[in-house]
Amino acid sequence: MSKNTTDADVAFISALAELLNKNGLTELSVKRDYGQDDSLDVRVVKQAPVVTVQAAAPVQQVYAPAAAPQAAAAPAPAAPEDPTQHPGCLTSPMVGTCYLSAEPGSVPFVALGSAVTEGQTVLIIEAMKTMNHIPAHKAGVIKRILVTDGHPVEFGAPLMIIE
C-alpha cells in the first residue's frame, strides 16, 4: 500500500489500549475497513487476572449488540437503552458460543415469559469444549432474550433480562 496509515494506526491502537484499561476489559477486537482489500484488524489483550463479572461493566461502546432480541413477543423498548444497565440483566462471564438448548433442536432451557429460580440453568456458553451452564442470577421471569442460539458472545455481553 502506498498510502501511509502507520501513524494513524498506531494512534488508533493506543486509543484502544486506553479504552481497554479504562473499562477494566481484558480483550478488545476491532476491524476497520479503509477500502476494498484494505483493512486493519486489531486485537488488544491484557493478561491481567479478570475481575469479577457480577456487576455489569459499561461495555456497550465496544461490544456490538450480541443479537436482535428474539421473536416479536419481545416488546420494543421505548427508548434506546443499554441492557447491561438493567438491574435484571444477566451478563456473560466469558467469551464463547451460546446455546439456548441442551442439544440442537431440543426444547430451550427457557422461553420468554418463563419463570425461573435462582441458579437454574438458562443457557450454555461453550469455549474450548467446556460447556458452561449459566445459571439465572435471580429468581423471576424471563423478560428478554438478547442472544441467538449458536452465536458468539463476548465477555460482559448482555444475555437475558430476568425480572
Binding site: Q54, P93, T121, K129, N132, H133, I134, P135
Partner: peptide
C-alpha cells in the same frame, strides 16, 4: 481442542461441563 487421535483416527473424546453462580 481436546480430541486424541491414534494414527489419525479418534481414540478419545473429552467433554467438560461446569455449573456456577454469580458469574463464577
Amino acid at each position: 481442542p481436546n480430541d486424541v487421535l491414534l494414527t489419525g483416527q479418534k481414540v478419545a473424546g473429552i467433554l467438560l461441563e461446569s455449573t456456577g453462580a454469580g458469574g463464577r
